[in-house]
Nucleic acid binder design. Structure first.
Length: 152
DNA sequence: GCCAACGTTGGC
DNA sequence: GCCAACGTTGGC
């Protein structure tokens, strides 16, 4: 099983939005970065776990756990001319963007970015690297366990 | 709203 | 293929 960290802006789609979905699942669409797309398309599989991270908000940090509930498939927003994620260069036969589906597992008391930074065992986390803006990053089993320890 | 650090685009 | 200009991300 692999572990991930997935960022979302709570004012766009937060953990509570996921909880209120009918099956507590949501397509992780709208990702328009090739590296993040490749992680979803090539590396994520059903059953993988991820931390749900709130970004671009007053209190950024990890706020929940999700699992991958569907392997990657073409992101439908790329074909939707009314969507802000519409991509005129993408075609049905050659889709450019993919997304997985995530399923809610658990909400946790916010582990703030400050606290994450303050834990020396987490210094290897990709999101702490200077200038890293990737919305999806892999994390190690050790990092995963260490973060889980912080919510007890 | 600012700004650093990227990624993408497009002319050449 | 280079690279300047532009757009985006995301913490503060």
């Amino acid at each position: 099983m692999k572990y991930w960290l997935m960022k979302s802006e709570p004012q766009v789609f937060g953990i509570d939005d996921l909880i209120s979905r009918p099956h507590q699942t949501e397509p992780w669409d709208g990702v328009r970065n090739y590296q993040a797309r490749n992680f979803m398309r090539d590396d994520m599989v059903v059953g993988d776990r991820a931390f749900f991270y709130h970004s671009s908000c007053p209190s950024p940090g990890i706020t929940g756990l999700v699992e991958i509930s569907k392997n990657a498939y073409p992101d439908k927003t790329q074909f939707d001319t009314s969507s802000k994620y519409f991509d005129p260069k993408s075609t049905i036969s050659k889709p450019r963007w993919f997304n997985v589906e995530v399923k809610f597992l658990k909400k946790i008391p916010l582990i703030s970015l400050d606290k994450i930074r303050g834990n020396s065992k987490l210094s290897t986390l990709q999101i702490l690297r200077r200038g890293n803006r990737l919305s999806i990053t892999p994390i190690t089993k050790e990092e995963w366990s260490e973060i889980l320890k912080m919510c007890q």
